[in-house]
Design a protein around this nucleic acid. Structure first.
Lengths: 375, 375
DNA sequence: CCTTAAGTAACTACTGGTGAGAAAATAACG
DNA sequence: CGTTATTTTCTCACCAGTAGTTACTTAAGG
């Protein structure tokens, strides 16, 4: 327990994190580049990199494409992606997915199970712990950094409890407090869509777009933001209730009590109702009129976010992830017309760049941020 | 120039700022309390406070109400508000106000002048420099920390240029680069309403509400936010265009090109048009029907902000600052109905707590943050 | 006189930078 | 072609500076 560390060591810890982040975001590079980029002296960089080498987190490698320059050739430093692992967990409606992920948030092994939403949440968390143990069984001691859970609903400020999950009927589930003793490693929880946004920002092909807005449309309309490179979590609740923005003056009443919520007119269930049937890819089957209506409502909500938060990139996931390109074109056109002029040419609307396991990677991204790259 | 400082000194500088902030926000307190609150050792606090005493920024004072406890009595430490000063500047449509402010952002001397919007901005800035020089003339050398300008429009990331002022027809006015050589002290610019929000958060009677949203309604509808104790500045533009949220499906066309913008139906000019006459306090003269309409439109926009950013406190300024209480009641009621349930009981709608010179104090708050309390 | 709490002084452990220098390559020159 | 100069990367010994620990003084109550 004891093991007091001098507070001046915090500076070193901070520099270790800075270097790891730069290696994550800018790839393999020599000590000299790191020092210049981070504004540290070459001497300090020698020491910091030395410590990372000792811990096995980075490795010296071949120089990347350099070669044709005067002077002593540089030694590339790169993250050893498999030096440590985290486990990402997605808790969905009636199903849980888990993935063992490396330091680049790539899934190397995965697992999943279904559960009855009526089941007690403690029981479900216990099963998560079991499956996670199995996934991490082959890892040497101390190589598992921790667990990150992407949960469907707001979380507390300490990222330890899932305050509310409307779909599951859960309230105040203390994921971290239940998982940590069972697994012996730290655990964190975050809102599922915010976790996906973080994953896209850190490990996706988003070109460093910031702010980044992730919109997940399925049962409802969830949103997550990364602003200034950090998951955006305003106020006590930290929710971005895009789905409950009012997009119609006289709309049907929403479960939230208000009328005209975006969620009432853009969701899997609503589209099924309008189509008269369920479909795995409902957006591909809408006629032009209905598509216009959907795009109009969605972009009314999106325009509010753009005007208030200036996202550079909007990723439409969920049922949009596999939607035909014309659907995106229509959304883009409708959005342009509603956005404040300066912002019009700045915001892009694209598909998520990570695959179908966005939730699991999201959980892993939250864990990696918490236990390795940030703080 | 040279005067290299050791980078380890950054730690000390950080701790100096921490102490000043705690004294600003939590008032006079002994070293022991500061140490506990900030998680530093008593020894360190002795050194840090010693340095602040040397610089004259704080003073030892009588113990505050304590007394009745065992042990050596504590010595209160408090900010000497008049140890340094900043100048706050509000640039409005055709008028500039300036104020010499102490470390609590209280105005001790002020000045103002009118200008013709057709005038070249460089000329106006030169006059600002002149007036500022006069205000600071009596200060001993080195006691003026700097100048903060609250400008009507977005600013660049370095807080040095006012990128755009629609009302004034200005583009890219480099306030800081013009003021600094003229005055010999650093200068910063920020968006006027965001500066007001910052001033309320730091020096107003807002009880530490966070996030805090300031809405200024006059010519248009401006908004400024403080989130996590910091001025909120998302993305490249950092604008929160509350006035251009769409609140009517079929509204009149706004100057921004879109239709149904909040600004088209809630502004001084629109109310004058509906009333058929100009009034110094138009909100006091609206009939119930028109008031309902205004409240409905305003709260549609506000609800979007609440659902997306979860402000704990909304301050309505400008023409609302002196509006009768029933106007506020109506706005509160209308807002409740449109906000996501969890957030309903969290958000308060109030009047600004600082006086009519909010712009000047806003500029001062930005300057104080930049040159004394933050970074 | 003991206890309690605030505040200070000497010392230690640790940090990052400076300046000098070693290492390893290209470029220039006789 | 061989040698030297140049350039750049990286390291080492040392130094200024920071905060914490431990032991101490100070000033009050009980």
């Amino acid at each position: 327990m004891g093991e007091r560390i001098s507070p001046v060591q915090d500076v070193r810890r901070h520099h270790l994190r800075l270097v790891l982040r730069s290696l994550r975001d800018d790839g393999v590079q020599p000590r000299a580049d790191l020092a210049r980029r981070l504004g540290l002296s070459a001497t300090t960089m020698t020491k910091v990199v030395g410590q990372l080498l000792d811990e096995g987190l980075v490795a010296e490698g071949a120089v990347e494409g350099a070669g044709q320059r005067v002077g002593r050739p540089s030694t590339g430093i790169g993250i050893r992606a498999d030096a440590r692992h985290v486990i990402g967990v997605r808790v969905g409606a009636g199903a849980v997915e888990l993935g063992l992920c490396d330091l680049r948030a790539r899934v190397s092994r995965s697992a999943s199970f279904a559960f009855d939403p009526a089941e007690r949440p403690e029981r479900v968390v216990a099963r998560i712990a079991e499956e996670a143990s199995l996934l991490a069984a082959d890892l040497p001691d101390g190589r598992l950094l921790g667990v990150g859970v992407a949960a469907p609903g707001p979380v507390d400020g300490g990222h330890r409890r899932n305050v509310l999950s409307v779909n599951l009927g859960w309230r105040d589930v203390p994921f971290a407090d239940l998982l940590e003793p069972a697994l012996g490693v730290p655990a964190v929880v975050d809102h599922n869509v915010r976790a996906m946004a973080l994953a896209e920002s850190r490990y996706g092909a988003t070109g460093g777009a910031d702010p980044l807005l992730y919109v997940h449309v399925r049962t409802g309309v969830g949103a997550g933001l990364v602003i200034g490179g950090q998951p955006f979590r305003p106020g006590a609740y930290g929710v971005t209730e895009l789905g409950h923005l009012r997009v119609r003056e006289k709309g049907r009443t929403c479960a939230c009590g208000a009328t005209g919520c975006l969620e009432t007119v853009v969701s899997e269930a609503y589209l099924a109702e309008r189509l008269g049937r369920h479909s795995p890819d409902p957006l591909a089957e809408l006629d032009d009129e209905l598509l216009d209506e959907v795009a109009d409502h969605l972009t009314t909500g999106l325009a509010s976010v753009v005007n208030l938060l200036n996202p550079e990139l909007i990723l439409l996931g969920g049922i949009f992830r596999t939607a035909p390109e014309p659907v995106f074109d229509r959304v883009r056109a409708a959005l342009r017309a509603k956005v404040f002029p300066v912002l019009r040419d700045m915001v892009r609307v694209e598909r998520p760049t990570l695959g179908g396991d966005a939730g699991v990677v999201g959980g892993a991204a939250v864990a990696l941020d918490s236990f390795l790259y940030e703080r």
